[in-house]
Amino acid sequence: MRNLYVPTKAVIEKIKTQTHDTKTFTIKPANGEKFDFEPGQFNMVSLLGYGEAPISISSSPDNKKTFDHTIRFVGSLTNTMEKHKEGSIVGIRGPYGSSWPVEEAKGKNVIFVAGGIGLAPLRPFIMQMFHDRDSYGKIQILYGARGTGEMLFTDEFNEWKKHSDTELHLTVDKLEEGEKWDHTVGVVTVLYDVAKLDPANTIAVICGPEIMMRFACRSLLKKGFYAPQIYLSLERRMKCGVGKCGHCQLGSKFVCKDGPVFRYDEAKEFHDTLL
C-alpha cells in the first residue's frame, strides 16, 4: 500500500516575482517523472519542519514536465517558500481534488471572474482554452484586485488579449493618489456591466476570497444566470488532502476530494460558507 503522506521530492526550477508578496515557482519532480493534472487541482506543498499547505496549480496542463505554484506569502510555510531559491528542494503530494469543467465548457462561452490571488487556480483553465481555442466560444476574463500592485500575471495580459474572441477586463478596488489606470475602479462585479455578460450558452467560473465569490455569484444570478452554470473553488483548512483529516468537510463533502471546485447550486446549500 502506497504511503499517502510521503511527499515526492521536487526541485524549484524557476522563480518569478508577481507582486510584492507573491511569486510563481516553477517546479519539477526530482525523479524526472511527468506530472499530470487537471486545471483546478492542487498539491499539498510540503516543507519538512514547516508542515504542508494546499496550494493550487497555476500552470498550463499541457506542460507535463513542470508545474507552477503561485504563492502569496501569508504564513509560516509560505514565508519560508519565499526564502527558497532556484534549485531548492520542496516536497509535493498531489495533484488532488476536482477540476474546472473543462469538458463541459466545450462549445460554450466561458466567463472567468477572479479576485486577487484567485486568478492563479483559474490560469490552467485559461491556458487550456488558449491551447485548444477552437473548442470554446467567447472568453471573458474579469479580474479584480485590491490595487494595481496586487495583480498577478500582468506581463501575460497582452498575450492573452491577442487570442481570438477573448476579452480581458480589469478593475481595482482603489487607486493610490495620482496613480494612472486605464481600466475600471470598483469591486469585480462592476465589470459585469462593462463586459456585457450574456448567460446564453455560457458558463462562469469564479475564484477569489469567499466573500467576493458570494457577491460574484449572486450578481450573476441577477444577470439571468442559473446556479448550475456557475462553478467556484473553495478554500478550506486541510491537513491531508486525501479525505482523512476531516478539517475541510462541508455537508457530506470533503473540499479536498470532492472539491475544491464545486458547482454553485451545490456549494450554496452548504452551511458554514460565506456564499
Binding site: L48, V74, G75, R237, D272
Partner: peptide, 25 residues
C-alpha cells in the same frame, strides 16, 4: 524533527481556520 498527527476536534476554535485568518466555523 517529526511530522506527527494528533487527534483534533471540530469543536475547537481553530479547526476551520485557514491561512489568511478566515475562520469558517
Amino acid at each position: 524533527g517529526n511530522r506527527v498527527r494528533i487527534w483534533d476536534s471540530c469543536q475547537l476554535i481553530d479547526f476551520a481556520e485557514v491561512a489568511m485568518g478566515e475562520n469558517f466555523r
